[in-house]
Write a protein that binds this DNA or RNA. Structure first.
Lengths: 116, 116
DNA sequence: TATGGAGTTGACTAACAACTCAACATGTAT
DNA sequence: ATACATGTTGAGTTGTTAGTCAACTCCATA
């Protein structure tokens, strides 16, 4: 529980068969930073960096992000720029949506346009 | 456009008939800080300070908070704790929802349960 | 046994956030 | 004219975020 992010990152990185150096190079970070994060010596990186890491590891960023309590800047942008989006989220918060209900909403979202 | 928060704050403060010094004193801030914020010389204060300001001015903090582009803590909580909620928002971001579409989503949200 | 790849650690830093302090300007009432 | 409340500004402070750099250690294999 103390270092769930670091542990998850290490697992994902190993699953992708990358060394700390390789991963770090592809994002443009110092490899020692990766090491410290994996060992919980430093807190998780910024949301944007997490997204970058996931891009390189070819995994979806949601799980790692959820472990950190951080919100990616793109998402923050829509949330803070659209009044209607805020309304939506306030309502969702008020209702206290379950995971299943969120999943239903994702489906509604996809039905909004023809299904791509 | 450039300084909506500062302008709104100034209006609210004047409506409450408080000087910058009075307002600042009641929160425990330096009055010159209020001045700079009102003039857009400094960015809006922290969310907590905004809430304090609103408490003193006897107004609801939502409007001023919304002007700052900061994510209200309620919303931040759901978004950061639920992987599915993040998935939803990432998808919404990817699709670039219009305001009308967000409104549709709010309706879907309400249909999710019987109408409370 | 030495060469190289992988990981760990301590010390340091640049940029930013959220302010304070001191000095000065301006407007108003006396 | 002056006294005082109010507002503005430049410069500096303190803490946090998100890392870097150089110096190690450990391990496999040629």
């Amino acid at each position: 529980m103390t270092n769930s992010f670091g542990n998850a990152l290490r697992e994902c990185r190993r699953a992708a068969k990358l060394s700390q150096r390789e991963l770090a190079n592809r994002i443009g970070l110092d490899f020692s930073y990766i090491s410290k994060i994996e060992n919980g010596r430093l807190p998780p990186p910024s949301a944007d960096t997490i997204v970058e890491i996931c891009r390189v590891l070819e995994i979806e960023p949601e799980e790692l992000l959820a472990l950190t309590g951080k919100i990616p800047s793109k998402v923050r942008e829509i949330v803070s720029s659209s009044k209607t989006a805020q309304e939506f989220l306030s309502e969702a918060q008020r209702m206290g949506l379950t995971d299943d209900e969120w999943t239903t909403m994702v489906k509604s979202l996809r039905k909004l346009r023809g299904h791509d």
